[in-house]
Design a binder for these strands. Structure first.
Lengths: 208, 208
DNA sequence: CCGAATATAAACTGATCAGTTCAGTTTCGG
DNA sequence: CCGAAACTGAACTGATCAGTTTATATTCGG
């Protein structure tokens, strides 16, 4: 089944390499760092690195996949979906913005989008192990909210897409274009609270 | 005042170069095409090209700036802001999605974001001549809608950021990651109409 | 029709960097 | 303690590509 994993993990210094790659990729992006430096920081020879991974791209993919898993787990652990819908949405929005603003998020977007044409495999894997997972979680949660009578949604998938998009309002574009790279807590609250309010105005079940 | 423009435009084959660059950049992105090919397609020698532009990046910037202007003009010409707010928003949304899905839009995002760290000048200029212009237009229009009594908005800037973001729901990310590259008219209608409905649910002045 | 501005072709520089090779060393299970 | 697997280091290959150079040719205003 998972032969691929076994094929890749064959040496004792595997984790050192991944950890070094994680740090450097997240800090400098894909093109911003050379394989030599990754090997050096890992305390490993370049030849060893290439014994583990067929090329730089697959090393990056592995790092990206792990990091997405990590973020997804953290998010799941932090958020209690039993709380009222607006509260949960607020928490989700703040976590989401946090990821987007992190070195990881910024560089992941940069690489996936920038490299998308030359390296479609990565962008697709990123979508599937990042945004798609979150989308599935959103759908699940929204359906719970509907069942609880807190939400009324005809097109749940569209709603699940709209919420994260709302959270990016005025942030994402300014971030990736470098127009603004630091956002205060107040700024984040403003956009997340705005997202929750807009979302609830449309989909909240107001019977009263 | 515009000495810079005069300094750049000094030969008779300038337009050929820009036009060639426009076509090829929009088709292959920034890194996807070499200067040699741009010169060849322009029917111009490489040396001539470098007589016009200090480097490849500034050539790209010029193309980007012109294309943004072009899109902004087209949008302004097509849309009649005297129509009812939801109708105007629908038209804006469809035009916006159209730009995003075009070769120009896709590659512009790709390059600005991908190249952002190494070439911040471009991303900033893009933000200013593209999204920022649209944002200003949105703000103006929303204020008109408020004055007309069709809208009620406390934070106009946030609302102006939210609408385009809503229009991207489920489209933008799938596009830039290559998960889905073609979108049907029905799909576009679904997301734009959904954006208008959500927006109006929050900001529409329903006194009835 | 002259001379200054502009354009050309094509070879060249120089820098970058992923990935390879190989001869030799270390590690570790059995 | 042996032999196989894993690892090392450092030089090397090979490809890409932006930008330069140079000697020559074309264009065009005055």
């Amino acid at each position: 089944m998972n032969e691929a994993v076994q094929v890749i993990r064959k040496g004792r210094k595997f984790d050192q390499v991944v950890e070094s790659a994680r740090t450097l990729f997240m800090q400098h992006g894909f093109e911003g760092i050379g394989v030599d430096e990754i090997a050096r920081k890992a305390g490993v020879s370049k030849a060893t690195l290439y014994a583990y991974f067929p090329d730089k791209r697959h090393l990056f993919m592995e790092v990206a996949r792990l990091e997405c898993e990590r973020q997804a787990e953290r998010m799941e652990a932090e958020i209690d979906i039993e709380r009222p819908v607006p509260e949960v949405l607020g928490a989700v929005g703040r976590a989401f913005i946090g990821i987007i603003l992190s070195d990881f998020g910024r560089n992941m977007f940069r690489v996936c989008i920038g490299e998308g044409e030359r390296f479609p495999e990565l962008a697709r894997q990123f979508y599937e192990s990042g945004p798609m997972v979150m989308r599935a979680g959103m759908i699940e949660f929204l359906e719970l909210g509907i069942a609880r009578g807190e939400l009324e949604i005809a097109d749940v998938e569209l709603a699940a897409d709209q919420f994260p998009e709302l959270c990016k309002a005025g942030v994402f574009l300014r971030l990736v274009t470098g127009v603004q790279t630091v956002f205060s807590g107040d700024e984040i609250d403003r956009v997340v609270d705005g997202a929750v309010e807009t979302f609830m105005a449309r989909f909240g079940a107001n019977r009263g």
